[in-house]
Design a protein around this nucleic acid. Sequence first.
DNA 1: ACTGGCACTCGCTACAGTCGAGTGCCAGAG
DNA 2: CTCTGGCACTCGACTGTAGCGAGTGCCAGT
Lengths: 340, 340
Amino acid sequence: MSLDDRKLAVLRAIVEDYVATQEPVGSRSLVERHQLGVSPATVRNDMAVLEEEGYIRQPHTSAGRVPTDRGYRLFVDRLSRVKPLSPAERRAIERFLAGAVDLDDVVHRTVRLLAQLTRQVAVVQYPSLARSRVRHLELVPISTTRLMLVMIADTGRVEQRLVELPAPVPADDVLDLRRLVNEKLVGVRLSETPPLVQALIDECVPHLRPAMTTLSTVLLETLVERHEERLALAGTANLTRGGLLDFQGSLRPILEALEEEVVLLKLIGEVEPSTLRVRIGDENEIDNLRAASVVSTGYGPGATIVAGMGVLGPTRMDYPGTIATVRAVARYVGELLAQN
Amino acid sequence: MSLDDRKLAVLRAIVEDYVATQEPVGSRSLVERHQLGVSPATVRNDMAVLEEEGYIRQPHTSAGRVPTDRGYRLFVDRLSRVKPLSPAERRAIERFLAGAVDLDDVVHRTVRLLAQLTRQVAVVQYPSLARSRVRHLELVPISTTRLMLVMIADTGRVEQRLVELPAPVPADDVLDLRRLVNEKLVGVRLSETPPLVQALIDECVPHLRPAMTTLSTVLLETLVERHEERLALAGTANLTRGGLLDFQGSLRPILEALEEEVVLLKLIGEVEPSTLRVRIGDENEIDNLRAASVVSTGYGPGATIVAGMGVLGPTRMDYPGTIATVRAVARYVGELLAQN
DNA sequence: ACTGGCACTCGCTACAGTCGAGTGCCAGAG
DNA sequence: CTCTGGCACTCGACTGTAGCGAGTGCCAGT
């Protein structure tokens, strides 16, 4: 059975009221606060149907109704109107991001901004190495048998690793090594470097082979294997906002999940299909987050996507507002990155 | 009035029991669990004195006693016996830290290890730039008007910044700039670089002055002003361990404090006077942490100290165990750093 | 198809009563 | 002078009961 317009209006009203008040909403208060044009009794009938269909539920008999995950899903998909950002918010975003000097700085400011605007936990992934290209490789001699390898990616990320050489290598040879790796690898997607790194050893003058072999191991580690996807987190204190009513009383599982980088990456890093994604309660594959919702999106310079960012909060969250904010922040950051 | 030995023994017993059970401890259970050799009535008299002196208090009449911050302080200073680490713990520390490839890696592993062993929140500061010396400066041309400045410190830290040059500078000149800054700055304490950076501009050949001027601004920012003291955090989920009984019911202020880098640095970064420091409840200068205790220490290669690390938990914590763990971890990390 | 009315449910709060852990004090023994 | 056993007292925790009220489901009527 499909739901008629009024039933949908009732669902929307329930979600909005519940999100606002945090209390189960009854039929009387509903008709009082929204112009539904019908009596409480009628609303009750509609509620009965909505409950049967699994969109709302009663915490206990003789209590008001509360939306289920399914109810929120319907709300997000079909019932929520886009909430345009206030000019004040737009200005806040611009001002907050304007002073950034550096990729680190951009990411840090972004994550704080998101946390502050949505009053929830924010996560921002650094531009993914997998999606970056090599801009430059630098070899800095630390001693005769030690080099510092510095990799600069076109997304602005910089990674460094220490290389322990098997035998001393004079400064001139280091320059040769440097020229070689740069010739072959600059401009290449990190994910596509492995065969080229292999080839490097073969094309290398014989007396540099041993050094190049060690170097190539470290290169592979730095470029693909160790694949250090970094992230920034902010706003954990916002988890306590709902006074422990959200998250069914225990922050434990949430905090645990937030400490696992792998989990977070799964959460916001998978940005393939659509550009903005909302995962509500049970839709999260991570057990610890069954009581939470996540709004995430990809971002990057211009239209390309180099990483993800998102927000985590109680299922009972202001979806339209959160979605609008996440989208706007991602766009601003994208513009900022495009300038560099 | 000074406390005789038995009163001190009573205090110790109260602290130990309360830490273990998390419940106010009464005179009867005290004599049952510890061999005090006296009757509950006697203990009650002692307790009355201890309470008068402010070492313990009653949550309400007709409840057992609970240590005050002052009581914990006395316990830590005079009553706690050193708890040697178990061989299993020693092995855990060694194994956990052994595989580290990198400064980042060391810090991350350390913070996780600390959190895991103490079952509390752990904070580890990266080696402070203020206490480091310049090992090498690298200038990487990104385009003709853009350089990437990479600073490698002797503590293993690497910082980078983008330099926007006022006019195009050919590659040869970049090499000159590089040679100049390295000649003057390598080996110098970061905090002592400013006058030398000033001098750089004067000693520079005229046609490189404009470039050197911009560069020196960025150098100063990187080396001293922006002074980015980084830190790593782990184990926030452990805050929920006490089931909200610790921290007087609200994690809010604690989580807020943990998000403020400045606050955390104040907490563990001030390592001047003694090597290990315990701050109990009210002794913390930060209001948000009046319900928490912090055990912190400095660490660094060998005997030198380059940064701080520490652990934060409820005032009701296992001080001897925590102190032993923090001290041991700091020593191991120090040894590890000394090897590089 | 909607409405008003009515009986019913059930969580919440308040209140009274009981239980027991723990205390302070005191008189007496060592 | 110190320690002990005894005793009266306090007060929080728990239990059971009762009344309230928000909210529901159902039904007959328009």
